[in-house]
Amino acid sequence: MRKEGPLIVMVGAALVVVIAHYITAINRTGFSTSFDNWVSVTMAVAVGLGLVGMTQVHMGNVVKRRAGFGYSILFLIVMYGFALLGLITGTGAPAFNWLFQNLDVPLGSTVFALLAFQTLSAIYRTFRFRSFEVAVFILAGVAVLVGSAPIGDFLIPHWSSLSSWLLSVPVSSGFRAVALGVYLGSFGVALRILLGLERGHLTGAR
């Protein structure tokens, strides 16, 4: 029953939501809405579980004095400090908002901006004309890169049109093929879960 119980609950709930989508009479019973509400509550509980999990990992680092445990202390202070501030003052309070806007946002943006430096370094080290295929790759990359910046049209009129064509025709068709495969695969997995054929996520078995 350890396996069958969760399976019955899952398949039953999924079927109600799917059928309610197509049959208005079932939709009116409110079952589907209740299930949607339950998901919201479960997701909120999952956030709390994440807090517990992170605390266990980082407290373990601190207690056992693992390498870099100072970062774990800092992490715990920031995590609980921010959470407590939000709980006490509310997330709309000026102090909470100030910390968010002046610490979280700039730090996040800085990490993202560093990608540009890493990408440039990678371009410099790897874009070498070693073969015909690589040359095509590099030229297409340069066409899109320069065409995406205002300088493209400034240097050669309609360079951006070439860049857009590259993105919307060859790249798009290639991606569409990949996406179709991914979606068909996802649909297959969803169907297997719904029919109870896929049980790995219930038991942890592979």
Binding site: L120, I123, Y124, F127, R128, L145, S148
Partner: peptide
């Protein structure tokens, strides 16, 4: 973005000059 694009092209040229 303009500067980064031009700089990337310059780096590709320099890298390939060195490579050859």
């Amino acid at each position: 973005q303009t500067m980064a694009a031009l700089y990337a092209v310059l780096l590709i040229v320099l890298g390939n000059l060195g490579y050859f």
